[in-house]
Write a protein that binds this DNA or RNA. Sequence first.
RNA 1: GGCCCCUUCAUCUAGCGGUUAGGAUUCCAGGUUUUCAUCCUGGCCACAGGAGUUCGAGUCUCCUAGGGGUCACCA
Length: 462
Amino acid sequence: MVVTRFAPSPTGYLHIGGLRTALFSWLWARKNKGKFLLRIEDTDLSRNSDEALKAILEAFNWVGLNYDGDVVYQSKRFDVYKQYIQKLLEEGKAYKCYMTKEELDTLRAEQEAKGERPRYDGRYRDFTGEPPAGVEPVIRIKAPQEGFIEFEDGVKGCIKIAASEVDDFIIARSDGTPTYNFVVAIDDYEMGLTDVIRGDDHLYNTPKQLVVYEALGFRPPKFYHVAMINNEKGKKLSKRDGALDVMEYKRMGYLPEALLNFLVRLGWSHGDQEIFSIDEMLELFDPKDINKSASSYNLDKLLWLNAHYIKNSSNEKLVELLKEFGVNLDGNEKADALLDATKQRAKTLVDLASEINKIVQTPSEYDPKAIKKAFKGEAIKNLKEFVAMLQEAKPESIEGYHEVMQKFVEAKEIGFGKLGQPLRVALLGSMSGPGLDAVMYIIGLDEVVKRVANIEKFLKDS
RNA sequence: GGCCCCUUCAUCUAGCGGUUAGGAUUCCAGGUUUUCAUCCUGGCCACAGGAGUUCGAGUCUCCUAGGGGUCACCA
C-alpha cells in the first residue's frame, strides 16, 4: 500500500510549486490504489490562518485532487507529541537545554566571527548540575556526533551528510510546543506514509527527521525531493511570474487539465509525449522518473496546452465554463456554431469569451486601418448588392450563407477578398475573425442587414 | 562562507558508451484560409569549460565555472 501526503503550512494560498508536488503525490497514491493524505502543519500557533486552508482546499477542488480521510491538524496533536518528547527524555535521547535565546545569539555571533558554521555547542547534552534559575528550557534531541547520516533519495540518489552538520536541534520550544522537524517525523510515521514527495528545499530537513526516526525506532519512508520550479529567467519564482494562487489561473481562463498537464511535465516526462490526460498520467507516472534539475516556468507552453484543451473541449463543457466569464449560452440555439467558430482561436477562456462577444455584439467602432483598407472602389456598392442577394436567398445554414457568397463573387467576377474584407469590417469591426459564413449564420440575416446599414451610415458621416 | 544538490537548443525535455544528439513550446519561412487564428510542411537553435578512463563519452571519474537549496525556540 502506497501512502503519500501533502503537508502545507497554512501561511498562504497554494501556488504552482505546491500544486506540482501535490499532483505527484496524488498520482503516485492513486496509481497504486493507495492513499493520499492531507496534513496541515500549523505548529507555530502565531502564524495560523483558516483562510489559507480554505484556499488550498478550493484549489484542490478546482483541479480535482481529492484526499483520503480527514485533514490532520498538527495543532490538535500536541498531546501525542508531548508523549513522544517525554519518552525521549526518559530514555536519555533528548535533554533539557537551559541556554537562553540571547546566549544562543551571542554564541552564533562568535562562531560566525570566527568563520565557523553557527551551531549549538551541546553544552547541556550531558548536563547533570543545577539548572540556572528562571530559565524555561527547550528540549533538544541527541543527534549523532560522528559519522554520517545517509539516505537513499528516490530522485537525487544517495545523500550523505556529515553528522557534524546536524546539531542537537530543538524539538520543543521553551513554551512546550513541539517544532517542525520533530512533528513531521512523528506524523509521517503515525499516518503510515510510505513515500514522501516534497520540494528539495526540504532536503536538509531529512537528516534531522531521520534523527527522530532513529531515536524513536521508527522505520522511515522513502523520500523523493523534487527540484524547484524557477521563473522564466531561471530565478526563484515570485508572485509576479507564476507563484500565483492556483485559483488565479482559473480567473485567467486556464483549464485545470491544462495546468495539470503543464505541471506534470515540469520535472517529469515520458519519452516524447507532451499531452497527458489524467488517466494517462495515472498510468505512466512514476516518481523514479522525476528529474534532478530545477525547471523554469514557461508561460508560452502553458498557453499552448490551454489552447489545446479548449479546442478539444466539448461545447457543452465550454458553455458551463464560460458562465464564469460573463457569457451565458444556455438555451442559445446557435451555441454550437458559435463555439465551433471560436474555440479554435482562443488560448484562454477569457479569449474565448471576448471572441464570442466580438461576434454577438454589434460593433460600436471600426478599426480605422481596416476601414481604409477594405473600403476602396466598389466596396460599399458590392456590399449592398450582396445584402440584397442574401435577402432574396434567406439562407438557413452556414453552408447556405457560403453558397450565396460564392454565387455573388462568381456573378461579379471578383475575388473573395473583394467581398470578404468590407463585409468582415461591417460585421466585426476589424479585419480578423472567424469565417463570415459562420458569423452571418450565428447573428442571423436581420443583424447582417443592420450591421451593413450601420457601416454605410458610418462611412457617409465620416 | 560551510555543507548538499544541479548543469543537453531561449524554455520543457528524450538520451541510460557507438545517434546526422530526437520531440515539444517560442521564433522564422512556405502551404491552407476571404482575413486573423487553427491546421499542415519545412527551417533556425543545445551536450557550461577543462582534464582523464576508453578503440570510442552528452552518457563514467576528477577539477573549474555557473545556478539553486540550506544553515531559526519558521515551516
